[in-house]
């Protein structure tokens, strides 16, 4: 996927989000939460797109670091601990419809951790999952609500998402 394709995909997802959540004409209970690292810039872009499309206030956007909720921490205590970075959710998630955003959906374990983390912040009305790429090979019963692109891969391959905000360019590539 090149930069243009990524941009059009995110615009399409923004429209889908509004279609699905704009039942009484307002979306004031929507909020975006991006999973570190690359879910964060995607969430911010979606916030901007949602605003461009429907106007009004910016959708509240937060950042989630799931490291402390990982299910593989401490299981194989070799090597140093993964770096923990800040979680910043500067709004109450109670009774909000949370759009959880990540770049790639693979085993589903990151999303499991993110759901546990989110619940520690309150009780949202609903959580919907947005991913730029779904590469399959799920190990947990988790499914995305909005998918940018389905990429059939083999487990030996790796899917790399590059974003301007983090990597200086927009591109999705399959390696290996």
């Amino acid at each position: 996927m090149d930069a243009d394709r990524i941009a059009r995909t995110l615009t399409r997802i923004a429209h889908e989000i509004l279609e699905r959540n704009a039942a009484p004409g307002d979306v004031h209970d929507l909020a975006l939460v991006g999973i570190r690292t690359r879910g964060v810039p995607i969430a911010k872009r979606l916030a901007q797109l949602l605003r461009d499309i429907r106007g009004g206030d910016e959708v509240p956007t937060g950042t989630l670091d799931i490291t402390l909720y990982r299910d593989d921490l401490m299981r194989h205590a070799v090597g140093p601990q993964p770096v923990v970075r800040k979680t910043e959710i500067p709004f109450s998630i109670d009774d909000k419809r949370i759009l959880l955003v990540d770049d790639v959906l693979y085993t589903g374990r990151t999303i499991r951790a993110a759901l546990d983390a989110l619940i520690d912040f309150g009780r949202p009305k609903a959580i919907q999952l947005v991913v730029l790429v779904d590469r399959g090979h799920r190990e947990l019963p988790i499914k995305a609500d909005y998918v940018g692109k389905n990429l059939p891969t083999s487990p030996s391959q790796s899917v790399q998402v590059h974003l301007v905000e983090v990597d200086g360019r927009d591109e999705v590539e399959i390696a290996g």
Binding site: L68, L73, R85, K86, T87, A117, D120, F121
Partner: peptide
Amino acid sequence: LDTAEAMREIGQRPIKKVPTLRGK
């Protein structure tokens, strides 16, 4: 010090607990 920055936020949540050292 950087890790402590992330840890401090946990103390400001409604549920001030993460499962990280479960079983330790």
